[in-house]
Simulated scan of single mutants.
Amino acid sequence: MTDPSTLLTLTQWFSPAYPVGAFAYSHGLEQAVAEAQVTDVASAEAWIGDVLAHGGPRSDVTLLGAAYRADAQETEEIDQFARSLAPSKERLLETEQQGGSFARTTRAIWGGDLPDLTYPVAVGRAARHMGFPVETVATLYLHGVAANLISAAIRIVPLGQTEGQAALARLSALCPSIARDALQDTLDDIGSCAFMADIASMRHETLYSRIFRS
């Protein structure tokens, strides 16, 4: 079992209080709401579940695992690959900004030479430096993504707090198996198929009235 001190640190890393700016990004969800593709708790949960299982977050876990196992030079190559996978300008900004903020905060608190990297690559590199179990890290990373998207849905669908948390509880049950499967993939296996979410992130760049940056 993962020891309590590791769990507490990981809880801190993926807490809304950790200053990575995740609250400012909706991963295209705001556009889906604007186009009435997401209108209630059921459609929000389905959208987020598909994004976790088939979209960028699953690819992120594979990138996280690759960075966890890589040396410094390989990490740079993985980071460049991660940037190339971003399907839109806003999604690239999302991973760059969150990754840079994560790296700066983590360096300041725990030390080390963690460079500014895309978000999953920075997390994987930091987890290796700290000696944390990669499957636990990946599972909590996915939970953090789900929690952030549910928080966004609560604000913009809108959803009630209780029904939002109920949806998050159901989505949380998906995280361990998605993390386990994605960690078994290599970089050659990466391939997102959440096309509606990717297109939503592209269309969001021209959304007239918005509160999120993606």
Rank of each mutant, 00 (worst) to 15 (best):
D188H: 12
A146M: 08
G99S: 10
A147T: 11
A146N: 09
L174K: 06
P57Q: 09
L117V: 03
A169L: 14
S101I: 00
D185R: 15
D3C: 07
A42Q: 15
F81E: 14
T39I: 13
A179T: 03
H54Y: 12
G112K: 07
H27G: 00
D50W: 07
S59T: 11
M130T: 01
A86K: 08
W13S: 07
R203D: 08
Q80I: 02
A32K: 12
I178Q: 01
V20T: 15
T136I: 01
D185L: 12
A82T: 10
A17Q: 15
I109Y: 05
P19G: 04
V51R: 08
L142H: 08
Q98D: 04
R213H: 05
S151N: 11
A200R: 09
A194H: 04
D116N: 10
F81W: 14
R180Y: 08
G164E: 11
A169C: 04
R125A: 13
D50H: 14
I211R: 13
Y208W: 03
G112S: 06
A44Y: 05
A147H: 13
A138C: 07
R83A: 14
A122K: 02
L168K: 01
A34T: 03
C175E: 13
P4E: 14
S59R: 03
Q98S: 11
Q80Y: 06
V20L: 01
Y119R: 13
D40S: 04
T186G: 15
A197N: 12
D185S: 09
A153G: 03
T105S: 11
G124S: 07
I156A: 01
P176A: 00
A103D: 07
A72Y: 02
T9L: 12
S5G: 00
G131E: 10
